[in-house]
Nucleic acid binder design. Structure first.
Length: 227
DNA sequence: CCCTGATTCGC
DNA sequence: GCGAATCAGG
């Protein structure tokens, strides 16, 4: 899979919304959790509380000898002890452990819910599912307005509208519903049919042989998700 | 073990 | 640019 504009948009939205990389990867499909994280970082989205980086004080000694990653000019000192615990002794004066820092949600919304993490989830398209309390303030209702009876569009004055339909006129649609000039054929029907002779020819066609069916239309969004 | 994100590095 | 491998904390 490639990072199309849409997939990046979904990734960005979900990442910023707090979804985990695994969830994002599952949602997108075709990519691994690592791919999502890698992409997120490349996009510059990286600031997020991570379990591993939570207590990150200025510790120089980090990332010890990784396998086959030792730079040439470095002295080799393979310490068998893999886990070197830091001396926790002196570390006491911590005015602010990490409370003020995580800029995950820098939104100025007065959050009464303490620091409970916001629960979010995403629909198939990556849209944000909102909880009951997350709704935006409803847009103010439009000022009351006098309702004026709609005048029929002159362009369809002579056309057969929905209300003009009866079982003697052809109900073949002309144009598309919703369009200004949408109307119906209106010609005298082919007796016994809902359409005129011409449109009966369009409506009733011989069944094609089994082998000559046209291929099914492509499934939307590239078909069923592959997990 | 599972989960998480961060980082590195060969491609 | 991409992502598997790896690291490291919970």
């Amino acid at each position: 899979m490639s990072w199309t504009e849409e997939r990046i948009a979904t990734l960005t939205k979900m990442w910023e919304g707090g979804a985990t990389a695994s969830e994002i990867a599952t949602e997108l499909g075709g990519v691994s959790r690592n791919a999502v994280i890698g992409k997120a970082h490349r996009l510059g989205l990286k600031a997020r509380p991570s379990p591993v980086k939570a207590n990150d004080k200025k510790k120089a000694a980090k990332k010890k000898a990784a396998p086959a990653k030792a730079p040439p000019p470095k002295a080799k000192a393979p310490a068998p002890a893999k886990k070197a615990k830091e001396a926790p002794a002196t570390a006491k004066p911590e005015p602010k452990p990490a409370a003020a820092s995580p800029g995950t949600n820098s939104q100025p919304i007065p959050n009464r819910q303490e620091d409970l993490p916001k629960i979010v989830s995403y629909g198939p398209g990556g849209f944000l599912r909102q909880g009951p309390g997350d709704q935006q303030a409803p847009i103010p209702p439009a000022p009351p307005r006098r309702l004026v009876p709609a005048k029929p569009d002159p362009s369809i004055a002579d056309k057969t509208s929905l209300l003009d339909l009866n079982d003697r006129v052809c109900r073949w649609p002309m144009g598309h519903p919703g369009e200004p000039d949408f109307h119906f054929c209106g010609v005298k029907v082919n007796p016994g049919f809902p359409y005129c002779v011409e449109h009966c020819g369009r409506a009733y066609q011989a069944q094609l042989p089994r082998g000559a069916r046209r291929p099914p239309p492509p499934l939307p969004f590239g078909g069923p998700r592959v997990r």
